[in-house]
Design a protein around this nucleic acid. Structure first.
Length: 142
DNA sequence: GCCAACGTTGGC
DNA sequence: GCCAACGTTGGC
């Protein structure tokens, strides 16, 4: 099982929008390193969703429901998208500041590579962030 | 191939 | 709103 973190600006696409949509095409990524991470995702992988800019916290957990396919929003160039489905919200959002301060999370790409929008996580970092958030409130089946 | 200019991201 | 970081573009 792979673990990942994706960023989104809540003003353009928020966790609550993902929850109400039920699923989303995670497209529009236009950075080669981030794209390559998308291509390394497998169906069933777990994904933390982070709100950048105005919110600056990890808010929820999603699951990859479709591995990488050509990004339909790309007019030109070789870009990829995946599909995500929300699994549940963290009981308490975990702030960037908390992540910076946590010794167990030192070296995490979210801090070390602040402009990367799709990044891998170790299982330990994934679980640690969820623990900081007090666990996951699973969404009801829909 | 180098590098200056430029655009974007994202923290503060 | 500002600005640092950094990726991309394009002239040479």
């Amino acid at each position: 099982m792979g673990y990942w973190l994706v960023k989104t600006e809540p003003e353009s696409y928020s966790w609550s929008q993902l929850v109400s949509d039920g699923t989303a095409h995670w497209d529009g990524v236009r950075n080669y390193e981030a794209r390559n991470h998308l291509r390394s995702m497998s169906k069933g992988d777990r994904v933390l969703v982070y709100h950048s800019v105005s919110d600056r916290c990890v808010v929820g957990v999603a699951e990859v429901t479709r591995a990488a396919y050509p990004d339909p929003t790309a007019q030109k160039g070789d870009w990829s998208a995946v599909d995500l489905r929300p699994k549940g919200a963290l009981l308490r959002p975990v702030t960037l500041q908390q992540i910076r301060l946590a010794d167990a999370l030192s070296g995490i790409a979210l801090v070390a590579r602040s402009r990367l929008s799709v990044m891998p996580l170790s299982a330990e970092h994934f679980e640690h962030i969820i623990a900081l958030g007090g666990g996951v409130q699973r969404l009801p089946r829909r």
